[in-house]
């Protein structure tokens, strides 16, 4: 394993990755989990490529095969979480690529999920947790849809434990949208045992209808190394988050064949 450098140079792995897949990790001002997301990509066997929010170069996506928009407080969550970041030049390119026929896989984690909803790649929105406090806990989820680019390595209905940590994590949408999401199987993850923030219908994450864009509030990138993440339901350290990255690699490898 290569070390994560002190500065956000996310690439530079000295050990050869297992695949030649390149996964972009976006940094906005105020992004916090970019180095963690890069580590998760590396541990899954791909090469993380740093992407800069303000990059106006036509090739700003640097030829990546998928994109992770990590968590944090882009622009301090001021105005609304994700509301300022969604207008970054790079976001326009990500939205286009996600909607193109190539269907670029995009994963939005926490603040990344909030940005994806503000950018209208995913429906609904996040408001303050119903208990009004920031909450950081080991959270069990049920995988409700294992046919997306980011969940295909999980069993249908599998329960996984990853980290939940946020202030504005309550997923809300109107009843019609919620009914549509349910009917189309686009609820990707649901909280198990306890709804930690009052999310409608216990929704922790959703996907677009094509299955290439997935957003969720909990953090798979914090559950990739035993001893540095959550405790699973069985009392042992969980690395359940690795499945997200293994899934997208599996899909990319499949497409390449």
């Amino acid at each position: 394993m290569s070390e994560t450098p002190l500065i956000a140079d996310l690439g530079g792995s000295e050990t050869a990755p297992l695949t030649d897949a390149k996964i972009g990790v976006v940094t906005f001002p105020g992004t916090l989990d970019d180095r963690d997301a890069a580590r998760a990509v590396r541990l899954a066997g791909a090469t993380p490529v740093p992407l800069w929010h303000a990059d106006t170069d036509p090739a700003a996506l640097r030829g990546v095969d998928a994109v992770v928009i990590p968590g944090g407080f882009s622009y301090g969550d001021y105005l609304r979480a994700g509301a300022i970041a969604r207008f970054a030049p790079l976001m326009a390119k990500i939205v286009d690529a996600a909607n193109s026929i190539d269907k670029l896989p995009v994963l939005g984690i926490c603040n990344g999920f909030q940005i994806l909803t503000e950018a209208h790649l995913l429906p609904g929105s996040m408001v303050k947790n119903d208990h009004l406090k920031f909450i950081c806990r080991d959270q069990t989820l049920r995988v409700e849809n294992n046919r997306t680019a980011w969940t295909n390595q999980y069993a249908d209905g599998q329960e996984i434990t990853i980290v939940l940590k946020n202030q504005d994590g309550q997923y809300v949408a109107d009843e019609k949208t919620l009914d549509e999401l349910e009917a189309e199987g686009r609820v990707a993850f649901r909280y198990v045992g306890w709804n930690p923030n009052g999310s409608r219908r216990g929704i922790a994450g959703i996907t677009n209808s094509a299955g290439n864009v997935v957003g969720l509030m909990p953090h798979p990138e914090h559950a990739v190394e035993p001893g540095f993440g959550p405790l699973g339901a069985d009392g042992h350290y969980s690395t359940d988050g690795l499945g997200f990255f293994a899934s997208v690699l599996s899909q990319l490898v499949g497409e390449a064949k």
């Binding site: 622009y75 301090g76 001021y78 105005l79 300022i84 207008f87």
Partner: peptide
Amino acid sequence: DPQGKAIVGALPRL
């Protein structure tokens, strides 16, 4: 007012 400061910074970019 940190919020106002961040918003006034973002407005001209749009």
